[in-house]
Design a protein around this nucleic acid. Structure first.
Lengths: 273, 273
DNA sequence: TGCTAAATCTCGAAC
DNA sequence: GTTCGAGGTTTAGCA
């Protein structure tokens, strides 16, 4: 049997590609596609003119406008306006769905069993409908923030060098706050400046200012250590010139340290505070 | 000049519909469409296989998988996996973008100036690309939650009836907490149970339990008022039977009251607490 | 299942 | 601009 090239292409593309896309579907086609997608726990993507009613923990009403609706395979719902990070209406995972068609509009109701609440999303024009079968096994790893790196170093000062003893952190001095203030094994003061990204000249100069501030008050030998995963070009010479040190330390390493500490090392880090 | 039917149709549909959709674009087409959409501050929708690196307040790495990317016209970024309410990677509004093409993948870099951070999103396969021009002027109104209704009534007891004097709220009694505890103009105790949705029989029975608990300790005439926007079927007779009252009150009314109070009535509601 | 604390919290308003 | 507080907060970790 012969298949028209265009049709064949279409069928093939649907098989290969995990997306079914319909532009400007009529309401009847749309409701069928939506019901099908929802029943098969696909991810549903709708772009169109809609209005939304929500009743539950609070109540809300959204007047008509063009938005993006995402219904995920776990039953979470997102209605996104063309601006802002956060959805204007939403539901967390676990919703049940009802789709129905009235002369005026296509309605999708998402019902959350507990706490009992629901949102009604009405479409009178759908520009784009996509039913997606997304395969996503990729691992997500969150590394430490600057604050976390601070915590990690406080929890295990060996990350910087052996026998380092932290005195305090976020120590206020004239130009700002010293990330970590410590004493090394030879009794010298140590000022530590932490960056979770490539450290630039600014970081080096900032550290230098802290050192100067400390030297004004404390009559003791003082070291400055810049802690960061990498150094920007030209910072290494600057550090040398300012007589400052550099200790490579990645957010990943800190993250691992924190995980370890969290896992075994109760009492928790908080006890340090 | 003659235009091929298919092309003509395409152009027309682009004019009428605020969406440009391309299925399975090649990388070269994609990068052009993306750059164009971003420069025109359109909303960009991408579905495909991607991996993400984030560095800033924290750092993160997301291994390859199929996801939805939304870049909004205000420069906010959302990377959504097929599950969960929250995006796996994101940026708040105000990002700047760089799009580039390497042999391996198409890269979109979103840079947030302050605090300085960025996410790199790499696509090696795009199933769906859509550039949207969403018109959304619709007003969004959030009405009161149950807690807000409580605040509103405390701020203006006239919402229930004249000369009502609240004594306390969240009053702990045997079966739970009384939303509002008050005295009416005739000196009778009043127990108020608030629902921000249609009140069912449960609400009426709950109120009844509170009344019984109060009657055990206070030797005074006690009224019970169920406050809700509407009553479920069969609740009215039940209330009558239990000798309880019903006061219709919508979250919307409370919201307006709160707004008024907030606008003029400093000191704020909190001073009541 | 219900509670507590943290979050790349976001978001808006007051200072 | 910065700080502060609320949110339909959400989310993760525990009792």
């Amino acid at each position: 049997m012969l298949i028209k090239p265009t049709l064949r292409c279409h069928l093939l593309s649907n098989k290969r590609s995990p997306v079914i896309v319909i532009e400007n579907p009529n309401q009847k086609d749309a409701v069928l596609q939506i019901q099908n997608a929802l029943s098969e726990h696909k991810t549903l993507l709708l772009v169109g003119n809609c209005w939304v009613d929500y009743k539950g923990r609070a109540s809300s009403k959204l007047e008509p406008g063009e938005r993006i609706l995402i219904i995920k395979s776990d039953g979470s719902v997102l209605v996104h306006r063309p601006t802002d990070y956060s959805p204007v209406n939403w539901q967390p995972p676990g919703c049940l769905f009802q789709t129905s068609l009235s002369p005026d509009a296509l309605r999708i109701r998402a019902i959350r069993p507990k706490p009992r609440e629901h949102i009604d999303i009405y479409f009178d024009k759908i520009h784009l409908l996509a039913a997606l079968t997304l395969k996503d096994e990729g691992a997500f790893s969150l590394y430490a923030s600057e604050q976390d790196m601070q915590k990690a170093i406080l929890a295990d000062p060996n990350l910087i060098e052996s026998e380092l003893q932290p005195i305090t952190f976020e120590k206020p001095v004239e130009p700002g706050f010293i990330d970590i203030y410590a004493i090394d094994k030879q009794g010298r003061l140590v000022v530590i400046e932490i960056k979770n990204e490539t450290a630039g000249k600014t970081a080096a100069l900032q550290l230098q200012k802290y050192i100067e501030a400390i030297k004004k008050t404390a009559n003791r030998q003082t070291r400055g250590i810049l802690v960061a995963p990498t150094l920007a070009k030209g910072v290494q010479p600057l550090l040398h010139q300012l007589n400052l040190e550099y200790k490579p330390l990645s957010p990943q390493q800190c993250y691992q340290t924190l995980q370890r500490q969290l896992g075994i090392g109760r009492p928790r880090l908080d006890s340090f505070l």
